[in-house]
Simulated assay, not measured.
Amino acid sequence: MKPLDYPLLADENIHRDVVRALLARGKDVRSVLDEGWAAETMSTCSATHIVRAESS
């Protein structure tokens, strides 16, 4: 099993350059910063609400 063979979600502690480098290598990776899900933007809602909204 190779971890980079699976989709990745990078939290706000992973530098955007790292995410961009992985994307350039063809890896399936998303960043909470790029998606607007970083802790700073979530002050009025919880991660549970985001997951529920996406699964609807």
Rank of each mutant, 00 (worst) to 15 (best):
M1S: 14
M1Q: 11
M1Y: 08
K2H: 12
K2N: 14
K2M: 06
K2L: 12
K2F: 11
P3Y: 05
L4M: 06
L4C: 03
D5F: 08
D5I: 09
D5H: 14
Y6F: 08
Y6Q: 15
Y6T: 05
P7S: 02
P7A: 07
P7Y: 13
P7W: 03
P7C: 12
L8T: 06
L8S: 11
L9V: 15
L9F: 14
L9E: 04
L9C: 15
A10I: 06
A10C: 08
D11I: 00
D11T: 00
D11P: 04
E12L: 10
E12A: 09
N13R: 01
N13S: 01
N13F: 04
I14A: 02
H15A: 10
H15M: 01
R16K: 12
R16G: 12
R16A: 08
R16D: 07
R16Y: 01
D17H: 06
D17P: 07
V18W: 05
V18M: 12
V18H: 13
V19F: 00
V19M: 02
V19N: 02
V19Q: 04
V19L: 03
R20Y: 08
A21S: 14
A21T: 14
A21D: 15
L22C: 09
L23E: 13
A24I: 03
A24Y: 04
R25C: 10
K27T: 02
K27A: 08
D28W: 01
D28Q: 13
V29S: 11
V29E: 08
V29Y: 05
V29G: 13
R30P: 00
R30N: 04
R30W: 05
S31I: 13
V32M: 02
L33R: 07
L33G: 02
D34V: 01
D34S: 07
E35L: 15
E35R: 01
G36N: 04
W37P: 01
W37A: 02
A38Y: 03
A38F: 06
A38G: 12
A38N: 14
A39H: 05
A39N: 07
E40P: 12
E40F: 07
E40I: 05
T41W: 10
T41M: 12
M42D: 03
M42P: 10
M42Y: 02
M42T: 05
M42N: 09
T44K: 02
T44F: 07
T44C: 01
T44W: 04
C45L: 06
C45M: 11
C45R: 02
C45V: 05
S46R: 06
S46T: 15
S46C: 07
S46G: 15
S46A: 06
A47W: 10
A47R: 09
A47K: 06
A47C: 11
A47P: 10
A47H: 12
T48R: 03
T48I: 07
T48G: 04
T48C: 00
H49G: 15
I50D: 02
R52H: 09
R52F: 05
A53F: 08
A53S: 03
E54A: 13
S55V: 14
S55Y: 09
S56I: 11
S56K: 10
S56H: 11
